[in-house]
Amino acid sequence: MSEESIISLKNVNKWFGDFHVLQDVNLEVKKKERIVVCGPSGSGKSTMIRCINRLEEHQEGSIIVDGIELTGNLKNIDNVRKEVGMVFQQFNLFPHLSVKENITLAPIWVKKMPKAEAEELAMRQLEIVKIPEQANKYPGQLSGGQQQRVAIARSLAMNPNIMLFDEPTSALDPEMIKEVLDVMVDLANGGMTMIVVTHEMGFAKTVADRMVFMDEGKIVEEASPDKFFNNPESDRTKLFLSQILHQ
């Protein structure tokens, strides 16, 4: 099993000061697998996926992404980041660049792609997220949903093997959530390896291969969506689900 894993977390521990955010976290993700991570706020789910592309450093244990172990070695970190795309809750588009420039920036400077080729690539990615007509606007002129789709296109332009989503719809108005989720469903159907931190349970039921429930820095339950929603083992999961599904 471990051989085919593209991401492997073993006994990962992390502290923020005295606060033990990740406690002996173990997670194996296979190629093309779609994982949905949920849990109450402060449970360490964002921290965990941020460790996978080293936006946060873990202090104990090992994280291996696509055969590369994440250590202090800067070259390894850069290589992992080229493999792993990330989409943030707050979109984090570059406000001084147009939509097209946002997308072409990394291919041009990190992958040394010729400008014309990068622009073609950017337009293809914008087609995928269904907003090619916004290419020359600035992020501040777009709605939240459109911005988040640009952010997805920007990550995809680096042709990553793995996509991490950190609560991608939490900062969106309700009517914009669907347009972003639709893009993510398309992506999942296309065979992308994905780890998604989200509370969109409808999305989880349709695309997830596996649900991961975290609480207080630990992975409490790992199960198929069917088992997770209908027959969860732990009481903590039951409580969480009853709260979140009865909104």
Partner: peptide, 23 residues
């Protein structure tokens, strides 16, 4: 500049200097 800008640049694989000069 919000930290999200640094994180976005980093997650795209940009180096320290590239991130600072471009973003």
């Amino acid at each position: 500049i919000p930290t999200g800008q640094y994180e976005a640049a980093r997650s795209l694989g940009m180096s320290y200097w590239r991130m600072n000069f471009q973003i």
